[in-house]
Write a protein that binds this DNA or RNA. Structure first.
Lengths: 232, 232
DNA sequence: TGTTGACCAACTTTCGTTTTTGGTCATAAG
DNA sequence: CTTATGACCAAAAACGAAAGTTGGTCAACA
C-alpha cells in the first residue's frame, strides 16, 4: 500500500474517532466502533496505533497540530502577535473553539472521561510539550516583561491568569461578557500585570517574533513527528 | 440546661467534628464518631443539627465567621485594606491558612469528599453568601476601578484572577515563589488590571472602608445568625 | 425536661458472576 | 509474498445479590 493511501486511511480513522469521541466520550467508544465507522477491520486500526490510548492521543495531537500551525501562520504575518497578551488571547480563543482541545483544557466535558483523567496523559498532551517554558524565557530575555519579575514569578502570574480564564470557561456562558470580550479582558490582564513599562521597538518585536516562531515551530515539529509514526 | 451550657456543648461537638474531618474526611466520619469524640450521645448531636450535612456546614460557617471577624477587625484598623488588591490578598492568605476553608476553596483536599462535591452546598457555603456582588458594586460606585470596566466585566476579571490563584494553590508548593509572594503577585495582578488611574483620596478611602465594613458586616451577621440556631 | 442508645430503612460495600472490550494472530484475500 | 481481517482470549468492566454501615428517630430512662 502506498504511503499516501496509508496516510489517508489513518486520517479517516482519526476522523471517525473524533466524531465518536465528541458524541459519546472516550470511555463509551470501542475500538470496534471506530473501525466500523472508518470502514476498516479492527486489526487495521492496530496497524496504525498500538493501543486505544495512542489512537486518541494522536487525535488530540492532530488537533493541536492544526491549531499551532494556524497560530504560526498568523504569527508570521504579524509579528506583534508574539507579544504574550496577543498570543495568549488568540491561543485561548483557538483552544476554546475546538471542542476536543476545549475539553482537554477546560476539563469539563464528558468527552475525555477515562482518558484525560489520567494526569500523565493530560500533562503530556497539553501543549506543555515544551513551548511554555521556552517562550517565557524568551519574554524575560527580550525584556518584554516588567523588569522586577523573575522567570518563576512571570511563570506563576501567567499560569494564574491563563488558567483562571480556562477555569472560568468551565461554567460556560453564565458570565456577562461574551467569549471575545472575555478573551480581551484576559489579554488586558496579562498586559497590564506583566508588560514592561515601555513598549518594544520594531526591531525587538521582530526578534521576539522570530524567537517565538522558533519555539512554537519546534513544538509543532515534535507533534508532527509523533503523528507521522501512525502514517508510515 | 442553660443557654451557655448548650452553646458550649455545640462548640465541643463542632471541635470534635473539625478534628475528625481533617483527619479522616467527611465521608469516613460517622455521626457516632462525632458524638463519641464529643462525649455525648448520638441523639444529642441531633438536638443541635437536623442532619449530618447541617453539622458540617455549621463547621465551615464557624470557620468563615472567625475569618471574617478577623478581617473586619483589621479593616477597622486600616481603611486601606478595603482596596480590592489589599482585601483579596489578606482574604486569600487567611483562607489558605485555615485547613477547612482551604479545602473548600481549593477543592483539593480529601477532607470534603462527599460533602463539597455537592455543588449546592459549596456555592452556598463559600462566602458567596452575599458579599462578593455587593462589594464589587461598591468598588464600581466609588470609582475605585478603571472607568471602562462595567460591573460584569469587573466581576469577571476578579473571578479570573482570584480563582486562578486558588487553582494554582491546588498544586501546592511546586511553584517557585513562596505563599506570601504568590499572594503579593495576585494582589498586584488585581491592582494593575483593575485599579483606576488615580488613587483614592483619604476621604474616599474612608467611605469605601465604611461601605466594605457594612457589606462584610452583614455577611458575618448572617453567618452568625445561622450558627446561633444550633446553640439556642 | 433533657439525654440516650437500640432500632430501622436506606444507602454503600463486597464479592462472585456475566458481559464487554482491548489487543493478538492464524487465516484469507490480493 | 504482503496486507487486511475478524474470531478469539485474557483482562477488565458491568451487574446484582447479599452483607454490612450509617443517618436519623423515638421509646425508655434519668
Amino acid at each position: 500500500m502506498s504511503e499516501e493511501a496509508r496516510r489517508e486511511r489513518a486520517e479517516r480513522i482519526l476522523d471517525a474517532a473524533a466524531e465518536l469521541m465528541l458524541r459519546h466520550g472516550y470511555k463509551r467508544v470501542t475500538m470496534e466502533d471506530v473501525a466500523r465507522a472508518a470502514g476498516v477491520g479492527k486489526g487495521t486500526v492496530y496497524l496504525h496505533w498500538r493501543t486505544k490510548e495512542a489512537l486518541f492521543r494522536a487525535l488530540l495531537l492532530r488537533e493541536s497540530e492544526q491549531m499551532l500551525s494556524g497560530l504560526l501562520t498568523k504569527l508570521r504575518q504579524d509579528s506583534e502577535l508574539a507579544l504574550p497578551w496577543r498570543l495568549m488571547r488568540i491561543l485561548a480563543l483557538e483552544v476554546v473553539r475546538r471542542p476536543l482541545l476545549r475539553a482537554l483544557f477546560v476539563a469539563d466535558s464528558d468527552a475525555l472521561i477515562g482518558f484525560a483523567e489520567n494526569e500523565a496523559v493530560r500533562r503530556e498532551t497539553q501543549l506543555e510539550l515544551a513551548p511554555e517554558t521556552r517562550y517565557l524565557e524568551l519574554l524575560v530575555e527580550r525584556r518584554v516583561l516588567r523588569g522586577d519579575l523573575g522567570f518563576e514569578e512571570a511563570a506563576y502570574l501567567m499560569s494564574v491568569i491563563v488558567r483562571g480564564f480556562f477555569l472560568a470557561e468551565r461554567t460556560g456562558e453564565e458570565f456577562g461578557p461574551g467569549l471575545e470580550r472575555r478573551a480581551d479582558l484576559m489579554a488586558d490582564a496579562i498586559r497590564l500585570t506583566m508588560a514592561a513599562e515601555k513598549a518594544l521597538g520594531p526591531d525587538d518585536t521582530e526578534a521576539l517574533a522570530a524567537g517565538t516562531i522558533t519555539v512554537f515551530g519546534r513544538t509543532v515539529e515534535a507533534v508532527r513527528s509523533e503523528l507521522s509514526s501512525a502514517y508510515a
